[in-house]
Simulated scan of single mutants.
Amino acid sequence: MMQLVGLGMGTWNIGEDPKKKKSEIAALRYGLDNGVKIIDTAEMYGEGKSEKLVGEAIKGYDRSQMYIISKFYPYHATPELERKSLEASLERLGTDYIDLYLLHWRGAHRLSDTIRGLQELQEEGLIRNWGVSNFDTADMQELFSVPGGRDCFANEDLYNLDKRGVEYDLLPWQEENKVNFIGYSPFNSGSGDTIRVTQNLKMVARNHHVTPHQIMLAWTMRSGRILTIPKAGNIKHMQENIEAQDIKLTEDDLCLINSDFPVPTEKQPLAVI
């Protein structure tokens, strides 16, 4: 199984403000030019505006050298509607296939129908792999009980310093069952809320000569086993994200961080933005 790990580029809220378009495209291209090959988007983001902007940003690049993830609405999770959603996404992105296509969150449609539709799209080469998003452990177990469910390639959930409940049971389950884990909103900014910058975080950042936000991002990548997808709307932010890949947190750093943001010791409801 190909492993999705390290740093990708998130695009939530990107492409919605025409005044920011130039800066957002420049940031994505800077990422691509500097080794960040994974872009995560969704039909929901700006009702297609994010995908459209990604499509503009990747024009002229070698498609085979990048990895594009997109998602479809739960109310489009039937074979017929998945196909319609995918065709619209492909047009906006200006590509003829998507590397990973995710059910954005659970809805009312039967998982067996959703999987059947995704299998057809995969057989036709329109998508390379499929997966889910905002699924908890029980959802994943149910998915695996449905015919074809074990072919799920990835699950994308909220994961950051402040929201680390998935470490208790979901991350170990996915590792055991060889399902890639993608963590979104590493800064928790998607909720309009940000992670508190504690004295310990500042101390760890000072020791590494980086910003507290770079420590937050490095922390999500510390295991080398998950993919994190921060958004960057300008080149400076993208540069900082890229630099965070080189930060190696020590056991002492992790102890300081854990004292402010404790390791989960019991099952927690899945955090979602």
Rank of each mutant, 00 (worst) to 15 (best):
G131R: 10
V132Y: 05
S133K: 00
S133I: 02
S133V: 01
N134I: 07
N134G: 03
F135T: 02
D136L: 02
D136A: 10
D136I: 03
D136H: 13
T137W: 05
T137H: 10
T137M: 08
A138M: 12
A138K: 13
M140L: 14
Q141Y: 07
E142R: 14
L143K: 01
F144K: 00
S145M: 10
V146C: 00
G148K: 05
G148N: 06
G148S: 07
G149K: 04
D151L: 12
C152R: 09
F153K: 03
F153W: 05
F153L: 02
A154E: 03
A154H: 05
A154I: 03
A154P: 04
N155F: 05
E156Q: 15
E156K: 05
D157T: 11
D157V: 13
D157P: 02
L158Q: 08
L158N: 03
Y159N: 00
N160I: 06
L161Y: 01
L161H: 01
D162I: 12
G165A: 11
V166H: 00
V166E: 01
V166Q: 00
E167Y: 10
E167G: 04
D169T: 07
L171G: 02
L171K: 09
Q174D: 12
E176D: 14
N177W: 15
K178W: 05
K178H: 12
K178Y: 08
V179A: 11
F181H: 03
F181I: 01
F181C: 00
F181A: 00
I182W: 08
I182A: 01
G183I: 06
Y184D: 03
S185M: 04
S185I: 05
P186E: 04
P186I: 06
P186M: 02
F187P: 07
N188A: 15
N188P: 03
N188R: 04
S189G: 13
S191W: 15
S191P: 10
S191E: 15
T194G: 14
I195S: 06
I195E: 10
R196T: 15
V197H: 14
Q199G: 10
Q199H: 14
Q199N: 13
N200E: 09
L201V: 10
K202A: 12
K202G: 12
M203C: 07
M203I: 09
V204S: 08
V204G: 06
V204C: 05
A205E: 07
R206A: 15
R206F: 15
R206Y: 15
H208C: 07
H208E: 06
H209R: 15
V210A: 13
T211H: 09
T211Q: 06
P212R: 07
P212N: 12
P212W: 04
H213Q: 13
Q214S: 11
I215G: 02
I215S: 01
W219Q: 06
T220W: 13
T220G: 11
M221G: 04
M221Y: 11
M221A: 02
M221F: 11
R222V: 04
R222L: 07
S223F: 10
G224H: 07
G224S: 09
G224Y: 09
R225L: 13
R225I: 14
I226A: 08
I226S: 10
T228Q: 08
I229F: 03
P230K: 01
P230D: 01
K231W: 02
A232D: 08
A232W: 09
A232V: 07
G233T: 14
N234F: 10
K236H: 14
K236Q: 14
H237G: 02
H237V: 07
M238R: 03
M238I: 08
